[in-house]
């Protein structure tokens, strides 16, 4: 599945140019070079347009991204800004952490690292937008996003959050990893935590003062999402019990974290023993989940592929069916 190909190109180019331009940048001065790269980056990867490879993905999923949203403000609750009002409304919170070795900084010029950073972020942002997510904050290569809102059911929000988390994990685990491995940089992986707070669990309100303020959630479950992220394995996703509860058809993809670690103390991410409140955390088998999606096909070798909407004649060559098809020698006797 090459849906991120157009986001990987700028990374490859930046890496390829890295050593060769060192002399040039010494002459030109760091600032000039950074500007050149930023402009080139914006041309190669516009902020507010999906690149063609990801556009095909959005098309296959049947969703269109909303590019009007601003970083840090969920539009359904933006009206709370500079007010003392609060609102209770459900939300799915997600923390995506992209871990990579600090090797990258020692190895490449800052401008190259900048391009890599931006490409990874844009791939994340664009994918989140396809699934109707709201980017609340960017953190290095990672992000903190909300899914859901006033015009979306809880079930849809949960489902879309899981779709985003799965597709993005796939991107880092396969596509990005491959690019870096060719450079001898082995460690790059995601860890994702997701949780759902119901209306009664979540307060939306202003935080901060004046200009240094934002509308955000005050919720145990936003905190738990962040904590569960830290409990995920490399390229893993850990979700809270509310997510499991709202995803009735996805039960086969969840297993309590304690079954992986073998430690009963890992079963709950949060407990208030006096109240008898225990909240379970689960590993989410995102690859298995992804393989069941209508827009995903599994190929002859077991890799996942995009089920494009166009007729195969548009993008494929039947000569490539032959190596598999030639093994068939059909008969007829009915």
């Amino acid at each position: 599945m090459n849906i991120y190909e157009d986001y990987l190109q700028p990374i490859r180019k930046a890496i390829a140019a890295d050593g060769q331009t060192r002399t040039y940048s010494e002459f030109a001065g760091g600032n000039v070079r950074n500007k050149i790269n930023l402009r080139a980056l914006n041309e190669a990867m516009p902020e507010k347009r999906l690149l063609p490879s990801l556009e095909q993905f959005a098309d296959a999923v049947g969703l269109k991204p909303d590019f009007t949203q601003k970083l840090g403000s969920h539009p359904d609750f933006a009206h709370l800004k500079h007010t003392e009002d609060t609102e209770e409304h459900y939300i799915v919170s997600m923390f995506v952490d992209v871990r990579r070795s600090t090797q990258l900084y020692g190895r490449y010029e800052p401008a190259t690292v900048f391009v890599i950073n931006n490409a990874i972020q844009r791939a994340a942002i664009h994918t989140a937008l396809i699934f109707g997510g709201y980017i609340h904050r960017l953190q290095g290569d990672g992000l903190f996003a909300y899914f859901g809102g006033k015009n979306m059911s809880i079930k849809d929000a949960v489902n879309r959050a899981l779709q985003f988390a799965s597709v993005y994990s796939y991107f880092v685990k396969h596509d990005l990893k491959e690019v870096f491995e060719q450079q001898g940089i082995e460690q790059i992986y995601t860890r994702i935590g997701v949780d759902l707070g119901y209306d009664e669990d979540v307060v939306w309100a202003m935080a901060g003062i004046g200009e240094i303020s934002e509308v955000t959630t005050f919720s145990l479950h936003t905190n738990l999402a962040s904590k569960m992220q830290a409990n995920a394995v490399s390229n893993g996703i850990v979700i809270g019990d509310h997510i499991k509860k709202e995803a009735a058809l996805l039960q086969e993809f969840f297993t309590p974290v304690c079954l992986r670690t073998g430690k009963e103390t890992d079963r709950y991410i949060f407990e208030i023993p006096k109240k008898g409140f225990r909240y379970t955390q689960h590993d989410f088998d995102w690859l298995k989940f992804l393989k069941k999606q209508d827009y995903i096909a599994t190929d002859f070798s077991g890799n996942i592929q995009l089920k494009r909407k166009q007729a195969p004649a548009v993008y494929a060559n039947s000569n490539n069916l032959a190596p598999i098809a030639v093994k068939s020698k059909p008969y007829y006797d009915f």
């Binding site: 002859f300 195969p312 004649a313 039947s318 000569n319 069916l321 032959a322 598999i324 098809a325 030639v326 093994k327 068939s328 020698k329 059909p330 008969y331 007829y332 006797d333």
Partner: peptide
Amino acid sequence: VYPYFANQLHRLSRQGYAGEEYDHR
């Protein structure tokens, strides 16, 4: 199974079958 269906698609794209066939009956 998989080769049989891949072969049918090969033929449907006006290329005929990729390999041989058995006569019928």
